[in-house]
Each structure stands twice: as structure tokens, then as C-alpha cells.
């Protein structure tokens, strides 16, 4: 584009227009504006191609959750499970240490608390309140340690321990039988496949039944915090 001149102006005029002094000035300004726009557009095009702004901040990856949190295994393993898995059952071999036909003697301290022998120091007595179960033989059969016994004297095998629990915890046992208490897995639709129920002792320690506490899995992350700072690796505790 070349400089506008008075001559040009006259040539460009359509017929029927009177030339007025301010017109030239206005036309000069129009040219100036249009040139400015050309420069602006070209600059803008360059800026767009160079992607100068508005580039999305890269997202800091969230560490994958520890597979331990995806594990469907139970908290504990029952005697029946160990038998099924053909694992070491030496813990249940009572007469490896105890003498047959000689019921063990329980000893108490001055507050009537059961004194747990060193060999059984892993046992925490915490079943029920007010020391109600301060007696091994409420559940274990003192004459045959490889059996359990209910309060009314029924003999129960270790593999059937849930029946023993049910002898006191009736309503819970009822819930458990229909699958309303405790863990289940498999098929809700029994015609498609079996349901697997867990034994009481798969979740509850019979000596201290309250369900154990555990570390929680990592909490949620906000969408926009990922662009700002790296997410610290979650500890699996």
C-alpha cells in the first residue's frame, strides 16, 4: 500500500460526492487503521502459531493406589481356610504341648483377671465386657482341647466354629445365615453360581472380636490441584 495523496483521493471519489476538507484526513486515518489491523492480524497469527499463551498446564500424575487396597482377602483366616489351603496347622495341634486327659489349670491374679501363660502370649482376652469371658473353657472343651463347646455343652469342631458363635449371638447368626451379616462374595443370583460366605473368625478374632482398625486408602484429589503441584506419593502405611 502506498501513501495516500490528494490526487489519489480525488481519483477514488465516487461521483456525486463533494470533496470536503475533513474527508482527506478521515481517509488517511482509515488507511492508517487498516494498516494497523494488517500488522495486528499478522502478529496475532504468529502468536497463535507459536502457541504463546493458554497452554494447558501438564497434569501431575496421581500415584497408583497400593494394590493392597484392592485385595479382597479377609482380615484373618479360619481353621477351615487353612485346611482347605493345606497349610500349616501346627497352631491347632494342642496336644503337642498339653497332656491328654489332663485339663489345663487356669490361674488368676488378685483382681480375678486370667493370667495368660507365656506360650499363649499372643492371645488378648477381649471377648465381651466386664470380664464375662474370663474363662477359656466357656468356649474350649477342657477335656478335649481339639474341640470347642457351647455353654449348653454341645461339642463343635474348629472347622464349624461359627456354630459356636451362633450359640450366643443368635440374631447375628440369623443375619449371617441369610448373608445379611458378614462378608459374602460370588453370585447374588444363585442360579448362575455359588455364594461364598465367610466364617465369623475370618473377620473377628474370637478372643477379641471387635473388627480391627486399619489405615484408610488415599482420599480424593481435586481436578485443578493436579495442575498446580505434584501429588505426594500416598503411603500404604
Amino acid at each position: 500500500m502506498d501513501q495516500p495523496s490528494a490526487e489519489d483521493d480525488q481519483r477514488g471519489l465516487p461521483t456525486g460526492y463533494q470533496q470536503r476538507p475533513h474527508r482527506m484526513n478521515s481517509r488517511f486515518k482509515a488507511t492508517l487503521v487498516l494498516r494497523g489491523l494488517v500488522v495486528l492480524f499478522v502478529g496475532l497469527a504468529a502468536a497463535f502459531l507459536l502457541n504463546l499463551w493458554g497452554r494447558p498446564a501438564p497434569l501431575h500424575p496421581i500415584p497408583l493406589v497400593d494394590p493392597a487396597f484392592l485385595d479382597t482377602a479377609t482380615v484373618r483366616r479360619s481353621y477351615a481356610d487353612l485346611v482347605r489351603a493345606k497349610e500349616d496347622l501346627s497352631d491347632f495341634d494342642c496336644y503337642a504341648c498339653h497332656e491328654k486327659n489332663k485339663p489345663p489349670v487356669l490361674r488368676y491374679d488378685e483382681h480375678q483377671n486370667l493370667l495368660i501363660p507365656r506360650e499363649h502370649s499372643d492371645i488378648v482376652m477381649g471377648h465381651g465386657q466386664h470380664g464375662r469371658n474370663n474363662n477359656c473353657f466357656n468356649c474350649h472343651n477342657e477335656t478335649n482341647l481339639e474341640l470347642l463347646q457351647t455353654r449348653d455343652g454341645r461339642q463343635v469342631k474348629f472347622a464349624d466354629s461359627s456354630q459356636l458363635c451362633g450359640s450366643c449371638h443368635g440374631p447375628t447368626y440369623e443375619d449371617w445365615e441369610v448373608g445379611a451379616h458378614g462378608r459374602i462374595s460370588g453370585y447374588w443370583n444363585r442360579s448362575r453360581g455359588p455364594i461364598k460366605r465367610q466364617d465369623c473368625v475370618n473377620c473377628h478374632n474370637p478372643h477379641a472380636p471387635p473388627f480391627p482398625s486399619r489405615p484408610p486408602a488415599p482420599g480424593p484429589h481435586l481436578l485443578h490441584e493436579l495442575a498446580e503441584a505434584p501429588v505426594p506419593a500416598a503411603t500404604a502405611h
Binding site: 479382597t72 479377609t74 459374602i184 447374588w188 442360579s191 448362575r192 465367610q198 473377620c203 473388627f211
Partner: peptide, 16 residues
């Protein structure tokens, strides 16, 4: 569930 199984959230719940 549409093949008769339980949902994943149910099977993993340690507390039932």
C-alpha cells in the same frame, strides 16, 4: 451384576 455376580465394591468391603 448382569451375569449374576456381586458388584466389586461389595466384594472388597472388609467389614461386610
Amino acid at each position: 451384576t448382569r451375569v449374576g455376580r456381586y458388584p466389586a465394591c461389595l466384594e472388597v468391603c472388609p467389614a461386610g
